Simulated scan of single mutants.
Amino acid sequence: MNQKIAAPVVSNRMSPALSGPKTPWAIKGELILNCNCTVFCPCVVSLGKHAPTEGYCQAWSGIRIDTGHYGDTDLSGLNVGLLLEIPGLMARGNWKAAAFIDDRASQEAFLGLIEIFSGRAKGTTGLFKLLVSEFLGAERAKITYENEGKTRRLMVGKKIQGEVVPVQGKDPEKDIVATNTEYWMGSDITVATATKGRVRAFGRVWDFDGRSAEICQIDWAGPDVPR
């Protein structure tokens, strides 16, 4: 059974207890994302200055943490799922978001990951605090993130069922990659598509099969943004 945490737990309103020195954190691993864009997401190269192809963005994402920590708490081996809803230009904010945290996480790791993905921990994900106006909630869930050849799969209980594959190029052995970008997730983004992209969570019912997807190796840290 999923353990739900009410939205105020991940509210972006800062309490005095959270206004002091920030905890050092780092995450290395891989991220996949599937959105409702009909072709490769224009936000990657426009850095959010170009509107999504449908005029708004709805997306799910999965993060596989290969190595990571929040202070002295080990995050290695854990998975995270995200739900994102953006009403227009990414850079203009007013996002809604929700987080799913691996049910294998300790309580310390659970709380640390909420700090990271709410943006309160600053650093690479600090933009969430600036752009997300409403956190819908955070909950523990059984999350699996699988790699099979070039295929990536994310399962978040019955809430997210996702599978993405790189778009095939002229040389099928080489992925199509947007390189040297200033995209916040990472500089090299593999162009992909979703063979399955279904969300049933927080009142959202989305089916993004065949829509835009991304694959990215991540190397994030805080409280300072890595250079």
Rank of each mutant, 00 (worst) to 15 (best):
W95N: 06
Y183E: 07
P87I: 04
K142Q: 13
V167Q: 12
S133E: 09
I86W: 02
I116F: 01
G186Q: 03
A98N: 07
E148D: 13
L111T: 04
I114T: 15
S133N: 14
L127F: 13
K129Y: 12
A97E: 03
N147T: 10
I116Q: 03
I160E: 06
P172W: 03
V80H: 08
V164R: 07
E108F: 05
R152I: 00
G169Y: 11
G186W: 09
A99K: 08
T124W: 06
T151F: 02
A138C: 11
L131R: 05
L111F: 15
A109Y: 11
K170E: 11
G112V: 05
L131Q: 05
N180D: 14
K122Q: 10
I176V: 15
G81A: 10
E148T: 09
D103P: 00
E146K: 13
R152P: 00
G126S: 08
S106E: 12
G157C: 00
S187W: 08
I176K: 03
E85A: 09
L89P: 01
K96V: 10
G112R: 05
A91Y: 10
G126F: 00
F128M: 04
G137M: 04
V165S: 02
S118H: 09
I160P: 00
G157I: 10
I176Q: 00
E182I: 04
G157E: 09
F110Q: 10
A121E: 08
R140N: 06
G162I: 00
P166G: 05
G157T: 03
F100P: 08
N79H: 12
N180V: 11
S187V: 15
A98T: 04
E139I: 00
Q107F: 11
G88C: 08
Q107C: 09
E115L: 08
G123D: 07
V156E: 07
A99V: 14
I114M: 13
E182M: 15
E115T: 06
T179C: 10
T144P: 02
A121C: 07
V167Y: 02
P87M: 10
Q107G: 12
L83Q: 05
K122W: 03
N180M: 14
G119C: 06
Y183Q: 09
A98D: 04
Q107M: 08
L84V: 14
Q168P: 03
M90A: 15
E148S: 12
F117E: 01
A138F: 03
G119V: 06
A178R: 01
R152M: 02
G88W: 05
A109G: 09
E108N: 09
L136V: 14
N147D: 14
E182C: 13
L154E: 06
A141H: 02
Q161S: 15
A141E: 07
D171N: 12
G162W: 06
E108C: 04
S106I: 12
F100E: 14
K122C: 05
A138I: 00
K158Y: 02
N180E: 14
L82S: 02
A97F: 07
K174M: 04
T124Y: 07
E163P: 01
L84Y: 11
F100R: 13
R153Y: 05
A105K: 00
A178E: 13
I143W: 03
L130P: 02
K142M: 06
A178T: 09
P166C: 08
E115Q: 15
Q168G: 01
Q168A: 07
E163Q: 13
G137D: 02
E163H: 05
L130D: 12
E148G: 07
R92D: 10
L154S: 08
E146T: 14
A97H: 12
